[in-house]
Simulated assay, not measured.
Amino acid sequence: MTRVLLADDHEMVRAGFRIILGSQPDLKVVGEAATGAEALARAAELEPDVICMDVQMPDMDGLEATRRIVADKSNTSAVLILTTFDRDDYLFEALRAGASGFLLKNSTPEQLIDAVRVVAAGDALLSPAVTRRVIERFGAQPDADAAEAPASLASLTDRESEVLQLVAQGMSNAEIATSLYVGEATVKSHVSKVLQKLGLRDRIQAVVWAYENRVAVPRA
């Protein structure tokens, strides 16, 4: 059973999400919050598997709440950002804050259900469209602005570095497996080791990290 916390300042929105998620036998809404501050308190109290987090809320916005939740090492909740605003500044701030997914509120009920399941499984909801925007944003930065490669990069094996490059290009584990002529289980193992060595939470952070540190090369 995946336990979900809903954080949104509109009661009708929370009610809709509660109905959609409650219709699934493997999903259970265990609490709600109307402000960012309440989301922090409820996350600590309930320890949900997934927090569906709005961006614009009173007291504290969802991005700051996400940042604090992810920074709390005792909290293992994954955060799925849900917003009506398809804006790059929200997207990149959400990724930097440590969100495990970003979904627009005009998505279908099926997409919401799938998103919750994906982040609950420890994966990241990184759609091709979002990946392209990350690549365009960070890939467009001039090389002159690049900082020296971080020391942690040296801890990766050649194969792990290769996998990081492919993850940063938005490739799925299946696509990486095909590209490298290995099994998906092997790719998953490499991805896990990359995240562990670089101190990253999930592949979304890996994408942002790779571009911010200029170790990824966009595909043509």
Rank of each mutant, 00 (worst) to 15 (best):
F138A: 02
M53S: 09
V191P: 04
A177L: 03
E64M: 14
R214Q: 07
E160S: 04
E45W: 14
G183V: 07
R14S: 10
R18I: 06
V134Q: 09
E136F: 00
L5K: 10
V50C: 08
A220H: 11
S189A: 12
V4C: 06
A37V: 15
I204V: 12
G62M: 14
Y90A: 08
L180V: 02
S127N: 03
Q196S: 12
H10C: 01
R219G: 07
V79Q: 07
E175M: 02
G101R: 11
D145Q: 15
D49L: 12
A177Y: 06
M12W: 07
D49R: 11
G62Q: 14
P142L: 06
L103R: 12
L91G: 02
A78K: 12
P58N: 11
G22W: 11
T76W: 08
A216Q: 10
L125N: 04
R18W: 06
A39M: 08
G36Q: 13
D123C: 00
V134A: 11
T35S: 15
L63P: 12
V79S: 06
Y181T: 09
A37M: 13
E45N: 15
A43V: 14
R96C: 11
Y181W: 00
E32G: 09
P150H: 00
A97M: 13
E93I: 08
A120R: 00
V30K: 03
G183R: 05
D143H: 05
A37S: 15
A115K: 05
P109W: 00
L63G: 04
D158V: 06
E32C: 10
V79W: 09
F17H: 11
L125G: 04
A39Y: 04
A146L: 10
D89V: 11
V217P: 01
V119W: 03
S127V: 01
A185N: 11
P218R: 04
Y211R: 05
A129I: 10
R18N: 14
G16N: 09
A185T: 14
S189L: 09
F102A: 08
L21D: 10
A71Y: 10
A15I: 11
N106K: 03
E110N: 05
E175T: 00
Q56W: 07
A65H: 10
I204Q: 04
M171F: 02
T66V: 14
L82W: 06
P58E: 13
V191M: 00
V30T: 15
M1L: 14
S189H: 08
A146H: 06
A154P: 01
L164W: 00
L95G: 02
A121R: 09
Y211V: 08
S192Q: 08
G183W: 00
M1Y: 09
G139C: 03
S192N: 14
D59V: 15
P150N: 04
A147S: 13
R219Y: 00
D86T: 09
V191R: 09
N75H: 12
T108P: 08
E32R: 07
H190I: 00
R87E: 14
A65L: 11
K105A: 07
L63D: 06
I113M: 03
G122P: 05
V30W: 03
R18A: 15
A120E: 05
T83R: 12
R132W: 03
V134F: 05
A144W: 03
R67N: 11
E162W: 01
D61V: 13
I176G: 00
F138G: 08
T186L: 06
T84D: 01
L80I: 15
A33P: 12
S74D: 13
E93W: 02
S189T: 09
R133M: 02
F92H: 06
S152D: 10
M171G: 00
